[in-house]
Each structure stands twice: as structure tokens, then as C-alpha cells.
Simulated scan of single mutants.
Amino acid sequence: MEDVLVSSLEEVLENVKQFNKDLQHETDIVQQLTQFKHWYYISDLQAFGPSKYIGYKDMNTIKYARGKGKTGIDTEKVLKQWFVKLPKESIRSQELMSELEKLLEQHGKKVRRDAVIHVLKEEGGMK
């Protein structure tokens, strides 16, 4: 079955919720946390989701299948419509990176050194 990219922000939000449920239930996705480079933060949900997971329709850990056949290049393109990448040196980026580190630490994982954070465009105003 072909993986289909998300076509609405609602689908992205559902995927972020599902990703965080999968984390809480300690599904297989926990083993892959250190692999994700592009993290998306939704302040309404106060939750993160990685690009390669949240960029495909109706995602869950089983469907994610350790990223098999999925590429961040495709998801980055589609997520760009709604999100903006924060400059690493921005205060907002550093605050969110700290939050992300805490989240991953709960699962005994570390954030990739080259990880970047994206936020919704309407929140992307530089601080």
C-alpha cells in the first residue's frame, strides 16, 4: 500500500496526537526517537511530532513500520505549507528544544544533534 501524504492541517494534528499516544504506550516508535531530525511543535496540543511520522495520512506506529519506504524529503515539502522552521539560535527554538529533550529523556533517548524545530506559521513570529 502506497503511503499518502497529508493534505490538511487537521490530518497533521491527528497524527501528532497519535504519535504522542504511541509514545505513552511505549510502542516501537520509542526505539526510533533518536533518528528524527525534523520535529514539529503544535502549541495548541503542547505536543511534538516528527516529520516522517506526521506527514503521512492516518499514521500510527504499526503503519510507520520503522520508516520503511518513507522519506522526510516528501513530508518536509508538504508540511511547509503550514509550518516554518525556527532558527536554531532563536529563543523560541531553544525553549522548544529543551522541552523536546525532556520528552525524549522520559524514554531514555536523546535528541539528534542536528535536530530542528518547526512551528505553525502563525506562531513563527521571531522573538
Rank of each mutant, 00 (worst) to 15 (best):
D3A: 11
V4A: 07
L5S: 10
S8R: 09
S8I: 02
L9Q: 04
L9R: 05
L9S: 03
E10M: 05
E10T: 10
E11R: 03
E11W: 04
V12P: 06
L13I: 14
E14V: 13
V16N: 05
N20K: 05
N20R: 05
D22A: 09
D22W: 02
L23C: 09
L23K: 09
L23N: 07
Q24H: 10
Q24N: 13
T27F: 01
D28V: 13
I29W: 03
I29T: 10
I29Q: 07
V30P: 03
Q31P: 03
Q32D: 15
Q32T: 09
T34H: 15
F36W: 09
K37W: 07
K37N: 12
K37H: 11
K37M: 11
Y40W: 05
S43T: 09
S43D: 14
L45Q: 03
Q46E: 13
F48A: 01
F48S: 01
G49N: 01
P50Q: 00
P50E: 01
P50R: 00
S51G: 03
K52Q: 05
K52T: 01
Y53S: 00
I54P: 00
I54T: 01
Y56W: 06
D58I: 02
T61E: 04
T61K: 05
T61Q: 07
I62T: 14
K63L: 07
A65H: 11
R66I: 06
R66V: 06
R66P: 02
R66M: 09
K68G: 07
K70S: 06
T71R: 12
I73K: 12
D74N: 13
T75C: 09
E76D: 13
E76T: 13
K77D: 04
L79K: 00
L79M: 04
Q81E: 14
Q81F: 11
Q81I: 07
W82R: 01
W82K: 01
V84R: 03
V84T: 06
L86Y: 04
L86S: 02
P87S: 13
K88W: 06
K88T: 09
E89P: 06
E89N: 14
I91S: 15
S93N: 15
Q94F: 09
E95G: 08
E95W: 08
E95R: 15
S98C: 08
S98F: 08
L100Q: 13
E101S: 13
E101I: 11
L103P: 05
L104K: 13
Q106D: 12
H107A: 05
G108I: 07
K109I: 09
K109C: 11
K110E: 14
R112S: 14
R112G: 11
R113T: 13
D114S: 14
D114H: 10
D114A: 13
V116D: 12
V116T: 15
I117L: 06
I117G: 04
I117C: 05
V119F: 03
V119R: 03
L120P: 10
K121Q: 10
E122T: 09
E122K: 15
E123W: 11
G124V: 00
G124H: 02
G125Q: 10
G125T: 10
M126C: 06
K127P: 15
K127G: 14
